[in-house]
């Protein structure tokens, strides 16, 4: 047991030592194409979609999931912080609902392990929909939804069934077939040479170490601020990130790495929505995460690359908030 691990370490050390002197190692592409959604019951997806857009879930009937996760606006609200019922303001920036199914966990601090778990969160959050589950279920009981649940789940609406329907719908929100994905699959003409150059820079600066996978992020947690303090003021509770979930010192200032798939469409940036434009966000990431100053020219090229990441937004018809 101990033996093979020592051996492994020796091998790893050898590889790294070689790497240190032989220039950058051969790298696999850190980004992969977005897969097609898994097959699901279309009726349940439709029900989930209906619920997603219906303010019936909120306490006073003023807010739906779609109010903040505006499907026509790349699944976000475009605001630094979400506005919930009665104008209550959330403390964090709304992440897009698109491609959320690919994330390893939901929320900035990853406190929900799955979409199903997440879907219920905002319903009872006083800053968001401010409801209580028994009330929501009672409202659904006395609505046409009852028949739909009966048909699909063979029973009356329950919290679990509502969450499952919402999650089913959200699992279909994958932005497939982006230019970059086509390029990854061998279509050299799918992106411009500048975008390809931007991608190379993205990788060589090390952005791709964390923003990787199908969702260009979302599959790991990372500390915010290796080089210097990125927080403008003294850290607020929301700045503690995953520490709020695990209570481990190690998780202080650790956040879920956000997806860059729709980054060009979803300003403002960072967990607190404190940065309005993408170039600034990239510059700050370079400074705090990589300890490097990225020249404006490189930033521009990287943005060209990011432009190729969004794919088809399947639910873009009637997604406006009521």
């Amino acid at each position: 047991m101990q033996g093979w691990r020592t051996g492994l370490w020796a091998a790893v050390a050898l590889v790294l030592a070689t790497a240190a002197w032989a220039g950058p190692p051969r790298r696999y592409e850190p980004i992969s194409p977005i897969p097609l959604p898994a097959a699901q019951d279309p009726a349940r997806v439709a029900l989930g979609r209906q619920l997603f857009l219906d303010p019936i879930l909120s306490r006073d009937g003023s807010v739906s999931c779609g109010s903040c996760h505006n499907l026509a606006m790349a699944g976000v609200d475009g605001l630094p912080h979400a506005i919930g019922i009665g104008g209550a303001e959330e403390r964090v920036n709304t992440p897009t609902v698109y491609n959320a199914a690919l994330n390893l966990a939901q929320f900035w601090d990853g406190r929900a392990a799955s979409l199903k778990e997440q879907a219920g969160g905002p319903v009872t959050n006083p800053q968001e929909m401010g409801s209580r589950w028994p009330d929501v279920v009672a409202r659904l009981e006395h609505s046409p939804y009852r028949a739909a649940f009966q048909r699909i789940d063979g029973g009356p609406p329950t919290r679990r069934r509502v969450e499952e329907a919402l999650a089913s719908f959200e699992r279909t929100l994958l932005t497939v077939n982006s230019p970059f994905d086509r390029w990854l699959e061998g279509d050299d003409g799918a992106i411009s040479p500048e975008a390809a150059q931007g991608y190379a820079l993205f990788k060589s600066y090390g952005c791709g170490s964390c923003h990787q996978g199908a969702n260009v992020g979302g599959n790991m947690f990372q500390r915010f601020g290796f080089y210097g303090n990125p927080f403008a003021r003294a850290p607020r509770p929301v700045d503690l990130g995953r520490f709020n979930v695990t209570g481990r010192e190690d998780d202080r200032y650790v956040f879920k790495v956000p997806s860059l798939r729709l980054a060009v469409l979803t300003p403002p940036y960072f967990h607190d929505g404190s940065v309005r434009d993408l170039a600034t966000a990239i510059r700050l990431m370079g400074r705090y995460q990589l300890g490097r100053a990225i020249p404006d020219g490189d930033i521009a090229l990287i943005i060209r690359f990011l432009d190729t990441l969004p794919g088809a937004m399947t639910a873009d018809d009637d997604g406006a908030a009521p």
Binding site: P25, L102, Q212, G213, N219
Partner: peptide, 23 residues
């Protein structure tokens, strides 16, 4: 984990898949 330690995993998506399977 071994692949990550050896810098041989191109991205972390497998972690998500395997973690979900385990869960």
């Amino acid at each position: 984990v071994l692949l990550v330690a050896a810098s041989e995993l191109p991205n972390y998506d497998p972690f998500v898949t395997h973690g979900r399977a385990l869960e």
